[in-house]
């Protein structure tokens, strides 16, 4: 049976909280997993004394175990793939396209012509 690395939703209504688990693919979402390798809190939070407005998300992860499970063929779901790729355990599935930047000389030159 396929072993997956996936999220199991806990928490309450409107305040999700996930366990990052290693489980058999056919088992129920919140059933007892093979192993809990971490948690993921999807609610972005602000630092108390930080006025910049930048938010952060807290993740706990046993990186060694995650590496091991990926090494023996466990298949991360898309969300977990994204998280694991942030730490560099696997290559990112979707590479974010580089942002479009207008060529530096074009805009001022056009403005001058008009």
């Amino acid at each position: 049976m396929v072993v997956k690395i996936r999220l199991a939703r806990f928490g309450r209504t409107n305040s999700p909280f996930y366990n990052i688990v290693v489980a058999h693919a056919r088992t129920a979402r919140n059933s007892h997993p093979l192993e809990v390798i971490g948690t993921y809190d999807p609610v972005p939070k602000a630092d108390t004394y930080d006025k910049s407005g930048k938010l952060h998300k807290d993740i706990k992860l046993d990186v060694t175990r995650a590496r091991y499970w990926v090494g023996v063929g466990a298949q991360p779901t898309d969300t977990v793939w994204r998280l694991l790729s942030l730490v560099g355990i696997i290559e990112p599935k979707h590479r974010t396209p580089p942002k479009f930047q207008p060529p530096p000389s074009a805009a001022p030159a056009a403005a001058q012509e008009v």
């Binding site: 971490g38 930048k54 706990k60």
Partner: peptide, 24 residues
């Protein structure tokens, strides 16, 4: 900003039911 905290699954204990285990 994603903040990854390194934890150890061994905290779950031999039976995996220890109170200090990570997660729900």
């Amino acid at each position: 900003e994603f903040r990854f905290e390194q934890i150890s699954v061994d905290k779950a204990g031999r039976k995996g039911r220890s109170r200090s285990a990570v997660g729900w």
